[in-house]
Write a protein that binds this DNA or RNA. Structure first.
Lengths: 144, 144
DNA sequence: TGAATAAAAGACTTTTTTGTCTTTTATTTT
DNA sequence: AAAATAAAAGACAAAAAAGTCTTTTATTCA
């Protein structure tokens, strides 16, 4: 469904969100540990997200990644779009270059529905909204 | 969503279904052209599907791939399971090794719903059911 | 039986994705 | 200003996915 990079991205962004809800910045090592991902790999992904403005960062001592007020309101759909592009939301399920209402693949109509559901779910999920549940250990960002 | 191999597999299987509904067998070259896929690549995938019994084949002159009565009633979910495994139906959307009702990722509950929808859609889509619409050019298996 | 045909099998290459390592740049603190 | 810290950047390496090419095996038909 998502690429590995995108899975890490979502987990990382939610991790940062939780940590930075009370003004804290969080380093890449702590993020990698917190979401159980390769450190340098998630670092690159976060650099992308930063360039696009989805997360903020600061170099040097006491630096790290954080989310400002505005970023808290970005959605998971925004993250997915940056990392995986929007093929999940708009591409043909069977990989046809041309697939449309007029020339649909056999799964076109059913997929339209499902992709819509996925989109709305991700669009309505704001980065900040999981903080409380994560803190309470009702939701988790890594296995085991 | 699906791997390239799986996209080709679904398209190929529906192509064969359509051709073999009146007893015809269809060669790998014709399949590759019919669904716009690399010839040797789809050949391998079909060999897998044949070993698993989802499609049938015959060597030699007038040979080719076909679907018997039983195979016509397999579903797209069966094809997906053979080619991509069942991670689409059961894996965690955020890639956690352990993700369950008791220890859910932030997307666990919403994803459960969506994956169920995908599964039911694929499970209820039998290989033979698109034949008429494909023949009438209401549905298509390649772009352009 | 021999030639032609078509799938099966296996080795191989290319591309993409994932992951690692090292160096550089910016910032803070002493 | 110097040392320490942490992100940024870029070059590599490994693994997986996608795609190609050649040889083998089975079947039919003349």
């Amino acid at each position: 469904m998502f690429s590995k990079a995108c899975e890490y991205a979502i987990r990382a962004v939610l991790f940062i969100s939780q940590k930075s809800k009370d003004g804290k910045k969080v380093g890449i090592r702590e993020i990698a540990k917190g979401i159980d991902s390769p450190e340098h790999f998630i670092a690159k992904i976060l650099q992308d997200l930063r360039r696009k403005g989805l997360v903020q960062s600061q170099k040097g001592p006491a630096g790290g990644f954080y989310l400002d007020k505005e970023s808290m309101n970005y959605s998971l759909a925004d993250v997915v779009r940056v990392v995986d592009g929007d093929s999940l939301f708009s591409g043909c399920g069977l990989g046809l270059k041309q697939c449309s209402e007029k020339k649909p693949c056999p799964l076109h109509h059913t997929f339209k529905q499902i992709r819509g559901d996925i989109y709305h779910m991700l669009e309505s999920a704001k980065l900040g909204e999981f903080n409380k549940q994560l803190e309470k250990n009702v939701l988790f960002l890594k296995g085991e």
